Computed example of a mutant assay.
Amino acid sequence: MIVGIRRTTLGSAAAYPRLLPWQVRERRFKPAGFGRRGLDPREVYAYLERVSGELAIVYDALAASRREAAVAHYALLRREADQPLGDDR
């Protein structure tokens, strides 16, 4: 059974604690069952599903941060445009 990621209204991964970079680097998978070569596909796919969910959260947060920065930048530009020339306040 592959465990999916359940999202809350805030977009966090509720099924797992946050995935840290060192956890990805050090992750090891069990060998496949008797008579098979490689890694257990169910375990690998479950882990990849988790990593993709974490990346989606990061990219969503990054997009929100960029939108917020753009709004602040636009507000600063409008404020500068509204200032009369020669006003040193």
Rank of each mutant, 00 (worst) to 15 (best):
I2R: 12
V3K: 14
G4S: 12
I5M: 06
I5K: 01
R6S: 11
R6W: 10
R7L: 15
R7E: 06
T9W: 06
T9R: 12
T9V: 11
L10D: 13
L10C: 08
S12I: 00
Y16W: 06
Y16M: 02
P17D: 02
P17S: 03
L20I: 06
P21A: 07
W22S: 15
R25P: 00
R25D: 08
R25W: 04
E26A: 13
E26F: 04
R27C: 06
F29I: 09
F34S: 14
F34A: 15
F34N: 11
G35R: 10
G35V: 04
G35Y: 08
G35K: 11
R37C: 10
G38I: 03
R42Q: 15
V44I: 05
Y45M: 15
A46F: 03
Y47S: 02
Y47F: 13
Y47K: 01
E49K: 01
S52G: 07
S52D: 09
G53F: 04
G53S: 12
L55K: 07
A56Q: 11
I57R: 10
V58M: 05
Y59E: 10
D60A: 09
D60W: 02
L62W: 05
L62T: 06
A64P: 01
R67A: 08
E68D: 13
A69M: 12
A70E: 07
V71L: 09
H73G: 11
H73L: 14
Y74S: 06
A75E: 09
A75C: 02
A75P: 00
L76S: 13
L76V: 11
L76Y: 10
L77H: 02
R78Y: 00
R78C: 07
R79D: 12
R79F: 10
E80P: 03
A81F: 00
P84N: 13
P84M: 13
L85M: 14
G86V: 08
D87Y: 14
